[in-house]
Design a protein around this nucleic acid. Structure first.
Lengths: 352, 352
DNA sequence: CACTCTTATTGCTATATAGCAATTTCTGCC
DNA sequence: GGCAGAAATTGCTATATAGCAATAAGAGTG
């Protein structure tokens, strides 16, 4: 339980808590006394107190002591919220999915009188460090930035989107990728499909692995043997969807009768290749996507896909972030929302 | 000489000076080395360095070292730029076109050490008024907000995108919609098309009217009589593209052999309907779009469309805004960039 | 030449301690 | 009670030192 947090930060939190629950009201004991009380070195307690002073929670006067700053609204809030999007994410903020997320976040945040700031054009999270212009940040990134998240978390309220950090103390909002994918594949199976291809994303995140595992789970549930040659490793791009389709169409044993795609972009790419080969969707091959991006309903044939409840995701994430900003402890809170299968025209009963 | 200043402050000043006169350029020696050099304790030099870091003069990275932060920003700036997107614009920031613009703007702005703030979720520009959090704003809106722009302009640097205000003193960056559309239609004519339908956007902005006029101009240039029944008033949405296609396909005189669309979304909507009617694109009907949104190259068949030079637009707009922020007068400057016709698969020679 | 293992460097945390200057509090005297 | 002087308290500066985690650089190794 003794977290890996530096001591002074833990002390700092304890003092914050003590102020909140009224244990400390006005004047704090002297630094030397506090050090004894918390059983840390003098310089350690000083570091904690100094940071609290920086934050405007305490104020100190030499020879008089340290006091709680009783100001209602801390004038420190910038009323800005940051949105950090991993630069490794395809197309960045112009990605059809994340632009929807961004839009929903802005809407939610605006309701509370806040503005939304975008951080998507950097390799790391350094721009967030020492950032005095935001009160908190919603982060969408790959596990590779996890260490940086830990750091940011120390001084900036943070909520994760889509991926869950292995440090489970950071609050997060995700969708149930496993269930959604499993459901989609089960749907295909219910249409009589047995040879079902899967186009995965980059397998470097929970999101991707969950979707793959959902696919595998559905096969397992219906006693369809797993076949590695039916799994194509994509990278979420249209191109990889095209590549995957070419691969499937060229399979010696014949193409699968259905293809499950880990996102809509790859589904669209795959559909293009299938159609270019004069095959009919869904009559010859069924295609199912994931994300329900705007265009999916508009192409021919309209794509059957899983829709994430983006508005809900945004609402949850923003609420959690605001709680965190207000100081309410919401560590360890993880919201998992269900995605919903939207049945359109791109999947149908298998030809016999 | 031994001033009464604390040692760490004197050290701090010395470091500042060293940076100013070029003795220190980029990387500083390690903290332990510096301590020796200045003949103070390790913790003392650390205190000096930390304060300099707080002030944004230095930045430190564990295992890499301490570095001078090279940027000379006037301290008055917030280093934030706003992007106002008229809430009347379809899909807002998740619109495939504007999300590309936004992405390009962020990239450009980041290079200058600025952040980008989104204002898209409001009916008017009130959120911009009294806004102390941005140094300038790039605005994308319909003429209906022109009066508000005048007001904002009084206290905030502003650059218009896409639309030109009738008050020509406000700097703007646009593309040559007239030429681009004229060129596209000329291209269709060169493929032998004579009955060319046009799906317009909402005719309440210059952008739209220019595109329509470009279409008409090409017809005129090639002595093809104008036919009002071939002009369908859309609203930039997929749905209106679908409606338009249904309208064209049901025309008593037969459908046009080609359709020019004022944007890609309507083109995609139209294509869907055409394909649902078992017609072939481009063999039966050619379709040309406008914008070159991401998905246009990925659908089947890949859409022939006009691409706006989005990176250039962003660069121009941001540069102009920065000039304006710095006080350089750039009123009356209007940059008009050419769009480029991207020929793909959705248009071909007319059937005879 | 590529790869692995080791070593060195770096900033960060933490502890212990000492003296300073300013102020408050206590003490004793009248 | 009033007041001067001593003592205690307070936060601040400064030093010295030790170990940590992460990374970069170097040294071997195949």
């Amino acid at each position: 339980m003794s977290e890996n947090l530096p001591k002074y930060l833990r002390v700092k939190q304890k003092i914050k808590d003590a102020i909140k629950d009224g244990t400390i009201v006005d004047k704090l004991p002297g630094e030397r006394v506090l050090a004894k009380e918390f059983n840390v070195a003098y310089m350690t307690i000083r570091k904690a107190l100094n940071e609290l002073q920086e934050e405007g929670i305490l104020h100190k006067t030499t020879t008089r002591g340290t006091f709680v700053s009783h100001r209602k609204m801390s004038p420190k809030t910038t009323n800005n919220i940051g949105f950090f999007l991993d630069s490794g994410i395809r197309q960045g903020i112009s990605s059809p999915y994340y632009s929807l997320v961004f839009k929903a976040l802005e809407k939610t945040v605006k309701k509370a009188g806040f503005n939304l700031l975008l951080f998507s054009d950097s390799e790391d999270m350094n721009p967030l460090k020492k950032q005095k212009k935001i009160d908190g940040v919603i982060v969408c990134c790959f596990p590779r930035l996890e260490k940086q998240i830990q750091e940011i978390k120390k001084f900036l309220p943070i909520v994760l989107l889509d991926n869950i950090a292995s440090d489970k103390s950071i609050p997060s909002v995700t969708i149930n990728n496993f269930n959604a994918c499993s459901e989609s594949v089960a749907y295909l199976i219910s249409l009589g499909h047995k040879r079902i291809g899967f186009i995965s994303g980059l397998l470097d995140s929970d999101v991707c692995n969950d979707r793959l595992n959902g696919y595998l789970d559905a096969l397992y549930q219906h006693r369809i043997p797993e076949d590695d040659s039916l799994i194509f490793k994509g990278d979420y791009s249209y191109e990889s969807g095209e590549k995957a389709a070419k691969y499937f169409l060229a399979m010696p044993g014949g193409a699968p009768t259905a293809i499950m795609c880990a996102n809509d972009s790859m589904a669209i790419g795959a559909m293009k290749v299938i159609q270019e080969n004069k095959l009919n969707i869904p009559a010859d091959i069924s295609v199912v996507g994931f994300d329900d991006i705007e265009v999916s309903a508009r192409i021919f044939p309209a794509l059957t896909t899983s829709a994430a409840p983006i508005e809900e995701i945004a609402t949850e994430a923003v609420n959690m972030l605001f709680s965190s900003i207000k100081g309410t402890i919401i560590e360890y809170k993880h919201v998992i929302l269900p995605a919903k299968l939207v049945i359109r025209e791109s999947a149908s009963r298998v030809k016999n």
